[in-house]
Nucleic acid binder design. Structure first.
Length: 873
RNA sequence: GGGAGCUUAGCUCAGUUGGUUUAGAGCAUCUGCCUUACAAGCAGAGGGUCGGGGGUUCGAAUCCCUCAGCUCCCA
């Protein structure tokens, strides 16, 4: 069969993915084996595959495939997240483009549209993950809003309410004026913004003169209910307790004093606007001040705002500034840089707003579940990279109550029921709510109960994911699978959802199962472009993930992403990395072509074949041993690089070249079989990283009849503990080749080299060295050749007779330089050895090593002196 | 403003409790090669006073102090 010189991934990837699915190799059922469980971070149901997903899922797939080959019962559970606010925003936008406003729709009609959208686009991303090669158990695909998972969320809410961990309260929350919903603290993204700081004059009522107040938000002046200074601020002592007039509004408000005030900021006078700032709100509470909410829910000026009513808050700011200026009340303006909160989903500027919402009491929760923090700090749950433990602790120690209600329709509806007079109970169903009311002595007809219109924060369902995908939570829990698969082993996710998701899964794990949800968390980096910019739609710097797979092949893309992706490090994406992956696939492919091309013959194994096999076997075993270590530390890019070099350098450039039959000869059957066996081992070691090409070659190398698919074959194990050679024979080969390059001697021209030193140093590799360097070696001849170029390999001295063509002066110069370098080195070594404190204090093996260095260097210097003398001085 | 972390070759990164032949890798670069597996290739080479300064130590990329620059998290 003629094989193309170029590897074509497109022809084989689809074939093997179908094969894996037909053989049901990714499906998992509880059995006698140890489980290895991974739950996918469920992508948004409306999402499409982007670079972040590819990285994340490639890492998961590497871990899962390796575990599967190692004989674990590997179970990778896929699924999607309903993504309440994100999906609702998309549906609203889609409807708007069709001329339909959400407010004109009933809840039922809107949800129908949303489900239609979900049916149409939901799961696209899962199909895309298959293109990447993800070995998920697709028969287990879950969705956070499917009936049983929905029910689990409702049951959990009721349970936590009954335990007193959930409460309904009125406080200042984050309000998204575009999404028209509250947000948790974690959904507010602070970004630095350049603004103006306005110095506004508040005229005295019962004193002459005025106070100057610095504010960035003049449009909220109508909500001012006081001005506040620091009690010890000498500038304002006389005015505390007096009154000023709110500019343009003319309301008289008191001058109060509180040590919250930062005297250095602005003029040291704060306008107190409790409805629109969390700190002002707290001061307002303390001084029992009224609250004047001057904004509407969509961020416009309300009736209470007195001026600019109905105008957008930022438009109103401009008008306010103009009017203040016109009235002579704006005294100065200065540039001002501060952090402004934006909605994670809609990017609208978030408003602090007083509102009645549902909260999870974090303080009580953590008191009840101290393991949530301690398990991470003690490495019961291990974080990779470890530094994120600090971030986690900081968050846990400062976290405020979790606002879990959202003013949306798409999501799990809050199971709270209100009687006509406004009282509420929490219950899973209306009937149970009715019973609850009856217990309280209230007889209410089911039809008169009104369910809370709000839904729950998306993360209030995803925090159950590692439990709920196994149907192990809620009133209808079935523990049979959960007991087998839980706790899961590894979680792979981005650091951006450490608080949103990882922390809360740990919370749910301990609260509902009394156990951690996973053993290890691997945090990937963010994918950035070459200029370190985040990938984003608006910048247009995000490559089309599927198109990359189409162009380069999934294996190449996976490799390109992994090569430079240590845990927690951002990935600077560059297409050249994917090219490197593609080139590697091509290299492997061509290695296969070479091996297949050979026609073995039944003769005794040749010495160079034997030596090359011995050499490669050592490399193979030490690389496999190193990789066990790398995987233990989740150092996937190191493990991959290790295999890359093993295949490209050691296997292809050295081993295959070494056993390659000379022109007109044929490889021995023994060597050929050995080469194919090594190749098959490499293929299996590479499989977790590059599943497609390895599956193809696995079948090819077993002549289409492997005992099992590569995906479920045995992961290569380390055969023997490797004893490193005293001298790498390839160092000798490189030096000879270097000499050829320097002297312009063709590789085709055979050389005779004289080696002085201990022949044992190259023992067992003589034939291989001869073949690779195209030379014959004479050991320790009695006569030194004249006119010889020389070099050192370790302590071995090598001479190559060049006769007339030798540049004697140049050679001398080179030797002198090398001697100088060695003398400097020797000086360093000897100053250590002559230092009594070193010899006395350093560990014995360290001292011994220095002695070895000394003697080796002296040998080298002696050799060089001999060479110099031989050249004539 | 509070906290965490980073700074090693042109680029991206390793560097294990301070000592492993006076710092390693991949990519990029340079030189020579169309050698019948692969030019998506082969062979070879060059390149860093480990951000600056100070200290501890027999010994510092590694520990401490300080200065400068950068990143992330939280408010």
């Amino acid at each position: 069969m003629e094989l193309s010189a170029k590897y074509s991934p497109n022809e084989i990837e689809g074939k093997w993915y179908s094969y894996w699915l037909e053989q049901r190799l990714f499906e998992s059922k509880p059995d006698h084996r140890k489980p290895y469980t991974v739950v996918i971070p469920p992508p948004n149901v409306t999402g499409v595959l982007h670079m972040g997903h590819m990285l994340n899922n490639t890492i998961q797939d590497v871990l899962v495939r390796r575990a599967r080959m190692k004989g674990f019962n590997a179970c990778w559970v896929p699924g999607t997240d309903h993504a309440s606010i994100a999906t609702e925003a998309k549906v609203v936008k889609l409807l708007a483009s069709q001329g339909i406003q959400k407010k004109d729709l009933s809840r039922e009609d809107f949800l129908k549209h949303a489900w239609d959208w979900k049916e149409k686009y939901g799961g696209i991303i899962l199909e895309q993950l298959k293109k990447l090669g993800s070995s998920c158990d697709w028969s287990r695909t879950r969705f956070t809003m499917e009936p049983s998972l929905y029910q689990a969320v409702v049951d959990v809410f009721v349970d936590l309410y009954q335990k007193g961990l959930i409460y309904r309260g009125t406080k200042m929350v984050n309000w998204d004026p575009e999404g028209l919903t509250t947000l948790s603290d974690e959904e507010v993204i602070f970004r630095e913004q350049y603004d103006q700081l306005y110095y506004v004059k508040y005229e005295g009522v019962d004193f002459d003169g005025s106070l100057q107040v610095a504010t960035a938000r003049p449009e909220t002046i109508a909500g001012d209910v006081a001005v506040c200074v620091h009690p010890e601020d000498e500038r304002y002592q006389n005015w505390i307790g007096k009154k000023v007039r709110v500019p343009l509004i003319n309301r008289e408000v008191a001058i109060i004093a509180d040590d919250y005030i930062d005297r250095e900021f602005g003029t040291g006078v704060l306008k107190v606007t409790p409805a629109h700032d969390i700190h002002d709100y707290e001061i307002g509470q303390k001084f029992q001040l009224p609250i004047i909410d001057t904004l509407t829910e969509d961020g416009r000026i309300s009736e209470a705002g007195a001026r600019c009513i109905g105008m957008d808050r930022f438009e109103a700011r401009k008008v306010w500034v103009e009017d203040l200026k016109a009235a002579g009340l704006l005294e100065k303006t200065e540039d001002y840089t501060h952090n402004v909160g934006f909605s994670e989903r809609t990017d609208a500027v978030v408003e602090p707003r007083i509102s009645t919402q549902w909260f999870l009491d974090m303080k009580k929760f953590m008191e009840k579940n101290p393991e949530v923090l301690s398990s991470v700090m003690s490495d019961e749950v291990r974080f990779f990279p470890e530094k994120l433990k600090n971030t986690y602790r900081h968050w846990m120690e400062n976290v405020r109550d979790w606002n879990i209600s959202r003013q949306l329709w798409w999501g799990h509806r809050i199971p709270a029921w209100y009687s006509p007079d406004g009282e509420f109970v929490v219950a899973a169903t209306a009937e149970q709510a009715q019973a609850e009311f009856a217990n309280k002595g209230k007889s209410i007809h089911v039809h008169d109960l009104v369910q809370d219109p709000d839904v729950l924060d998306t993360w209030f369902s995803s925090w159950l994911w590692p439990i709920s995908v196994f149907d192990g939570i809620g009133a209808n829990a079935d523990r049979s699978e959960l007991d087998y698969y839980y706790p899961t082993q590894d979680l792979v996710t981005g650091p951006d959802i450490l608080f949103f998701w990882v922390a809360r899964m740990i919370m749910a794990g301990y609260e509902f199962e009394g156990k951690k949800p996973f053993e290890n968390v691997y945090f990937t980096g963010l994918i950035r472009d070459k200029q370190r910019r985040k990938m984003s739609k608006s910048l247009g710097n995000s490559p089309d993930a599927l198109e990359l797979i189409e162009r380069f092949g999934a294996d190449a893309v996976r490799m390109g992403l992994l090569l430079c992706a240590p845990a927690g490090n951002d990935i600077l994406f560059d297409e050249s990395q994917i090219e490197q992956g593609r080139n590697f696939c091509n290299k492997i492919w061509n290695a296969y072509r070479l091996v297949e091309m050979w026609e073995p013959v039944e003769v005794a194994q040749r010495p160079y074949e034997k030596e090359a096999g011995d050499w490669f076997e050592k490399r193979l075993n030490s690389a496999l041993a190193e990789n066990e270590h790398h995987f233990g530390q989740f150092r996937l890019s190191d493990a991959l690089m290790n295999l890359y070099k093993l295949v490209w350098d050691d296997f292809c450039s050295v081993y295959l070249e070494a056993i390659k039959p000379a022109y007109g000869e044929r490889i021995s059957e023994t060597a050929w079989n050995q080469a194919r066996a090594y190749f098959a081992t490499l293929v299996r070691a590479l499989h977790p990283f590059m599943p497609f090409i390895t599956e193809e070659l696995h079948h090819a190398l077993h002549e289409q009849k492997p005992s099992a698919a590569c995906a479920v074959s045995d992961y290569p194990v380390v055969e023997v503990q490797v004893q490193n050679d005293a001298l790498d024979p390839m160092a000798m080969v490189s030096e000879v080749r270097n000499l050829r390059a320097q002297k312009g001697i063709s590789p085709k021209e055979a050389l005779e080299i004289c080696i002085f030193g201990d022949p044992d140093l190259l023992k067992g590799y003589g034939h291989m060295v001869s073949k690779m360097a195209n030379c014959t070696a004479v050991w320790n001849p009695s006569d030194r050749p004249t006119g010889a170029a020389s070099f050192l390999v370790g302590t071995l001295e090598v001479l190559v007779a060049l006769g007339q063509s030798l540049d004697v002066e140049g050679e001398k110069e080179r030797i002198l330089q090398e001697m100088n370098r060695l003398k400097g080195f020797l000086k360093g070594v000897e100053s250590k050895l002559n230092n009594e404190k070193f010899v006395a204090n350093a560990q014995a093996d360290v001292v011994e090593r220095e002695r070895q260095k000394q003697s080796d260097t002296l040998t080298k210097l002696k050799n060089l002196e001999g060479q110099l003398a031989a050249l004539g001085s």
